[in-house]
Design a binder for these strands. Structure first.
Ligand SMILES: [Mn+2]
Ligand SMILES: [Mn+2]
Ligand SMILES: [Mn+2]
Ligand SMILES: [Mn+2]
Lengths: 158, 158
DNA sequence: CATAAACCGTAGCCATTGCTACATTTATAA
DNA sequence: TTATAAATGTAGCAATGGCTACGGTTTATG
């Protein structure tokens, strides 16, 4: 068993009967990234939703979020509490939910990114309905390099 | 409170003081889709991994998967058990993991989709490292319409 | 063959995000 | 103002996917 580092990534080679049998795995980096991105996903969607609901209706209630995401108000309530602890949201019992400065900053970044992904998919030729669905998931998995490439594509097209 | 159905989607309008204050929300469809896609993500990644490891090394052990995904062997073991129950994998104690017919079929679909997403990002101008990372997450959020659009883009470019 | 190393399973912990059922608070309306 | 409706909170359950610790099984090697 030999452990080798390549570009900071652990590569494992297994010698069985004198010859190398297995090498695993630079690929694991991608999965670690994906898991980490999923860990931020709820926060990103929630601050974006809060910003949109406030813009549209002047305030954002727990039940608005429940309907926005199609989940129960209990699920929303618990997540709002967590994001309050993480200083992204402000919330008091029976009061509307608000964004902290940090939350608003994140929301603006996330909204911008979402808009680019959506516009990109539509420009690529995807119908709006599917573009809206797909972009809701894809937005959390695009690096800044990918966003740049999408912007580039959009600029060239117009 | 009035509940209206548009294209099978529930739209809620709230009357406060006689006038409509809120409408929520066709957007919820996208989130429901995203949650459902995340629910399939582990299965998709695992059957793809099993197929790749078998192709590369002749067999797929629990520890190979652990290194492939960069998680503990315990996590793999539990997930393999679940996917065995779901008839996507075959597994017996201390034996290598194998694909069922159904699992192999899913793996082929998922591998093909992954290849398209990766090639697409690279063709779009994203460097390989970021393309590999991003595609690992994006692959689970592309509708068949989006895949078609990506294929189209790849054909035009060549 | 015996021992060590590698592999794998199980127990049990945690965090997250779904849910229903029920209690409490706030807002609307009779 | 009081009764009802709407909104919110709390208790408690489940599934999923992380983990460490520990013990059993299989394989490699001296
Ligand atoms: Mn999203
Ligand atoms: Mn995702
Ligand atoms: Mn993946
Ligand atoms: Mn994949």
């Amino acid at each position: 068993m030999a452990t080798v580092y390549v570009k900071g990534i652990i590569l494992n080679s297994y010698k069985i009967g004198g010859q190398v049998k297995k090498k695993v795995s630079a690929r694991s980096v991608a999965f670690s990234h994906t898991r980490s991105r999923h860990a931020n996903e709820t926060a990103e969607d929630y601050v974006e939703a809060v910003m949109e609901l406030i813009e549209e209706f002047g305030e954002c209630r727990v039940l608005d979020l429940a309907r926005y995401f199609n989940v129960s108000h209990v699920t929303v309530s618990r997540i709002v509490k967590r994001l309050h602890d993480e200083k992204l949201l402000r919330s008091r019992p029976y009061k509307p939910v608000e964004l902290t400065q940090e939350g608003a900053k994140l929301a603006r970044r996330v909204k911008e990114r979402h808009k680019i992904v959506l516009a990109f998919l539509i420009e690529l030729g995807v119908d709006e309905a599917n573009a809206e669905i797909d972009s809701e998931g894809i937005e959390h998995h695009v690096s800044s390099k990918t966003i740049d490439a999408m912007k580039n594509f959009l600029n060239k097209k117009t």
